[in-house]
Design a protein around this nucleic acid. Structure first.
Length: 490
RNA sequence: GGCGGCGUAGCCAAGUGGCUAAGGCGGAGGUCUGCAAAACCUCUAUUCAUCGGUUCGAGUCCGAUCGCCGCCUCCA
């Protein structure tokens, strides 16, 4: 099957062909760093991670840009109210942003340009728009004139004359020629304090939309392959980006637009007033507050396993019981493969099962990132391997072959290999190990009541024990740990 | 009001014209086991929000209805 993605503009799946064969240039709208990213933001970043990893898996060389908006109304408001420099607000948030995406194993983009580092590029772009007659100066502000761009509204399906004057328009913006025009450059006002840049139109700062146009052109060129973001960005943000970019360059800008649906919490939109605008940190606290282990791997799987165009209704309760168990099933295949001890070749049934899984995994991804079908192919492989394993254990070469394939799948999924080294809490780990050894000793001494009590206690906390001949494998949704049985003999 | 999306088993979730409707979680029974866990085997949607229509044939196309959701100027 040829690779195809849904395109927001065409409203259907279309074959994906990059401008340069084998290379994909993608632009992904990044965070505004005035407060920590929410799990809703991460849903979008996870979608982009899946897209990126899938393209790489299919052999494309990917160049991804994610902007960091480190100056806008909200960052300025924060800085102003706390009476601190802008960077005091943005720097810590940026630091935590990277910490969070790393813990989710979201691969890094090639470039993370910050808006404040590219003000000259934005000014340059605004100049071109003024020269082309697509923008006008009003007092100290520069506005984009929507009337000058006939194609406005094509991405979102908005009809210009149907746009109603929104309720959120500031009084000071009524001076625009047309209420639908948007700011390219905002002149300095008192609230901005010392946050301003010099421009041909006086001191001020760039509007939000111009940032993405300038940065994508800077790093990817005036035409590139993919532009992505959350659905809420379709209008007006991406519509405006197209208007600015196409008007300035005469080129088509992004060729393919992809947008991820929102994440809902317990059936409701995430919002501050409902108190469900979880960050990774507050979600962890919520889960741990209920007495559960917070599995970041299970959370990654939860975000990953719903198709990106379908709203994901995240429920803390469901999350606690569901994904971690599915994850363990996948992890156990790795156990089986690593612990294979038999001599001999690879059974044809295993080879066929692996090839089937590989084929279906790949073709599902090629069909607009059909992750559910991809994951299903893994579970089918697990079942088949387990069946054959119960007939006769796995050979070392089968184990090796399975591990190889598992690594291959994990290039896309990023959830199959989650080791104890990924678990931050060392204290927790040693506590588990002590318990496991206690139980091993009890078993050897045939004090089965004691052994069972310990096992039940661990299980109650989400740790599952797998008794092997030479070792006990502890598996939980945060990782796994192998304790050698012989340690216990000393 | 305008534009768009979604509604498949107890729960999550694939399937967009044609073999018996993937897969996961949960549940029931069995095998194995010191006992378990895991694993394996069997079972768990005559039916795809509802009602019409097109078709030899529809969850899948068309229309209507109901329900949920998003965007409509700076929220991923």
């Amino acid at each position: 099957m040829p690779l195809q993605f849904y395109d927001t503009r065409k409203r259907r799946k279309i074959p994906f062909k990059p401008l340069t064969a084998g290379r994909v240039k993608m632009y992904t709208c990044g965070p505004t760093v005035y407060k920590d990213a929410t799990i809703g933001n991460f849903r979008t970043y996870m979608f982009e991670d899946l897209l990126r990893r899938t393209l790489q898996f299919l052999g494309y060389e990917v160049t991804q840009v994610m902007n960091i908006t480190d100056v806008d109304d909200k960052t300025i408001r924060e800085a102003h109210s706390l009476e601190v420099p802008l960077s005091d607000i943005t720097e810590p948030v940026i630091k935590r942003f990277f910490r969070d995406i790393d813990s989710l194993k979201i691969e890094h983009a090639e470039y993370y340009p910050r808006a404040t580092d590219y003000i000259p590029e934005m000014i340059e772009l605004i100049k071109r728009l003024l020269d082309n007659g697509n923008a006008y100066i009003m007092d100290t502000n520069v506005y984009y004139s929507i009337a000058s761009f006939p194609e406005y509204g094509r991405l979102s399906g908005m009809k210009l004359d149907k746009l109603e004057r929104g309720v959120r328009i500031n009084a000071d913006e009524y001076e625009k020629e047309d209420f639908r025009d948007f700011a390219l450059w905002k002149g300095w006002t008192e609230e901005d304090g010392d946050i301003w840049w010099e421009s041909p139109w006086g001191r001020g700062r760039p509007g939000w939309h111009i940032e993405c146009s300038a940065l994508s052109m800077k790093f990817l060129g005036e035409e590139f392959d993919l532009h992505t973001g959350g659905v809420d960005n379709i209008f007006p943000h991406h519509e405006n980006e197209i208007a600015q970019s196409v008007a300035a360059t005469g080129k088509s800008f992004a060729r393919h637009w992809m947008h991820s649906a929102h994440l809902m919490v317990e059936g409701e939109k995430m919002s501050k007033s409902l108190g469900n605008d979880y960050t990774l940190k507050s979600l962890r606290e919520k889960v741990e507050g209920k007495g559960y282990y917070f599995s970041i791997a299970a959370f990654r799987l939860a975000l990953l396993s719903t198709h990106y165009r379908k709203p994901l209704d995240f429920s803390v309760e469901d999350f606690l019981v569901e994904n971690r168990l599915a994850l363990v099933r996948l992890w156990l295949l790795r156990n089986a493969a690593e612990l294979a001890i038999l001599d001999g070749g690879i059974r044809p049934e295993i080879e066929i099962a692996i090839e089937n899984a590989q084929t279906h995994f790949k073709s599902a991804l090629e069909d607009d990132l059909n992750i559910s079908a991809s994951l299903a192919s893994l579970f089918i492989l697990v079942t088949e391997v387990n069946r054959l394993k119960s007939v006769r254990g796995l050979t070392k070469s089968e184990g090796k072959r399975l591990l190889e394939q598992w690594r291959e799948f994990d290039k896309v999924l990023g959830v199959l290999f989650w080791d104890e080294e990924d678990e931050e809490d060392e204290e927790l780990q040693s506590k588990i190990e002590v318990k496991v050894r206690e139980r091993l000793r009890a078993r050897l001494e045939r004090r089965f009541d004691d052994a069972d009590r310990i096992r039940d206690e661990l299980k109650g906390n989400g740790y599952q024990l797998d008794d092997g001949k030479d070792e006990t494998v502890v598996i939980w949704s945060g990782g796994r740990k192998i304790v050698k049985n012989k340690i216990n003999n000393s």
